[in-house]
């Protein structure tokens, strides 16, 4: 894999929220690699740091949060330390992000057409410079975007407000706005969590479809391993602010190496498991304030040992795979 294949490379990212109870290390030493054209799934439960990781990439972390360390390289450029002006030029044009809740992410007081035009005005450099030609080009492009995401009679719907659309349609509009400037990377944060399954299937197929057509990369943040299995080339599993496992989706699901990933897979109720007990992961996610230097999954891990009471680093766990579990190293030595 040449360096040129890599679109986004995050190294040792640390994002901290300063609270009255102490510093919450929401993202603690996270590495991410996104290749050109691939779909990376990011899985984790609430508080795992999956959204904060990518808000950090977008430069959207606000006080009391701050990026305390690490490197973010996008398409050959360092993003940390970039001035607000330069960051604004990249955000939206090169990297776009869609939010979980389309109703609050869209502006209720502007029509869908106005919100698309805003994005195009800010980022599309192929448009005519000014005047009627520019307005016409923006309108044409807006209609084209709505058509691309499958909104019927897009011409007449440009003048409507977000509340006039259903939940699935709003999610499509947000995707249309995010894709309008032709970004190289789309970060989709729980794009279907608020949607019904039949609509979820439509929206996910739409994202896969557009990715193939436009050749962009997608990061799909989700809590649903089923969604990852169907749509992502690679997967990264996060727990309590750290990556605990990553690799090709098929490998990770067929042969999970980290006990947390195994626990997550065993927690999913399946039609085929009727009558057999499911094996939930006991306990709950630890408080991220003042964590001791040990495996963060220790208190819930069914396979814990004394040697887990030390800082555990990510280690190779097979071709193209890494996991943060001490058992893997010992097994390799043995």
């Amino acid at each position: 894999m040449s360096q040129n294949d890599i679109l986004l490379e995050v190294e040792d990212l640390r994002t901290v929220f300063d609270t009255s109870e102490g510093a919450v290390r929401a993202v603690d030493g996270v590495d991410v690699t996104v290749r050109r054209g691939e779909c990376l799934g990011v899985v984790g439960e609430s508080g795992s740091g999956k959204s904060v990781t990518f808000s950090s990439v977008m430069g959207l972390v606000r006080a009391p949060g701050r990026i305390a360390g690490g490197r973010i390289r996008f398409d050959g450029r360092d993003l940390i330390g970039l001035g607000p002006r330069d960051m604004r030029a990249i955000r939206g044009r090169d990297i776009s992000m869609t939010m979980q809740d389309a109703l609050t992410a869209l502006n209720p007081a502007l029509t869908v057409g106005e919100q698309l035009a805003e994005m195009l005005n800010a980022h599309d450099e192929d448009l005519p410079a000014r005047g009627g030609a520019r307005r016409r080009a923006i309108r044409e492009k807006s209609v084209e975007m709505l058509r691309l995401v499958g909104i019927p009679s897009p011409d007449s719907r440009l003048g409507q407000y977000p509340h006039e659309f259903s939940g699935g349609m709003r999610q499509r509009i947000m995707i249309a706005i995010a894709l309008a400037p032709g970004p190289k990377l789309l970060i989709a944060d729980e794009p279907t969590t608020a949607l019904d399954v039949t609509i979820q299937a439509q929206v996910l197929e739409l994202i896969s479809d557009i990715r193939a057509r436009l050749g962009m990369s997608v990061v799909l943040i989700t809590h649903d391993l089923g969604v990852v299995a169907e749509h992502c080339d690679r997967v990264m599993v996060m727990y309590a602010g750290q990556v605990v496992e990553e690799g090709a989706t098929v490998d990770v699901i067929a042969n999970p190496r980290h006990p947390y990933t195994r626990g997550l897979l065993a927690s999913i109720p399946r039609l085929s498991m009727r009558g057999q007990p499911i094996r939930p992961i006991e306990g709950q996610v630890p408080n991220l304030v003042g964590l001791p230097p040990q495996c963060r999954f220790y208190s819930r891990c069914p396979e814990r040992m004394d040697s887990c009471l030390q800082t555990v680093a990510m280690r190779p766990a097979g071709p193209g795979r890494r996991a943060r579990c001490i058992a893997i190293a010992e097994e390799a030595v043995a």
Binding site: E45, L264, P269, R270, I278, P280
Partner: peptide, 30 residues
């Protein structure tokens, strides 16, 4: 997901233990 599995397991155990009958409403077919 992991907490969901705990609660499902709890509801099933309580049903057997206390002889309950459930009307279980969900959008999740699994």
């Amino acid at each position: 997901v992991s907490i969901q599995a705990q609660i499902i397991q709890l509801l099933l155990e309580l049903k057997d233990e206390m002889g309950l009958t459930y009307l279980f409403i969900s959008h999740d077919i699994s």
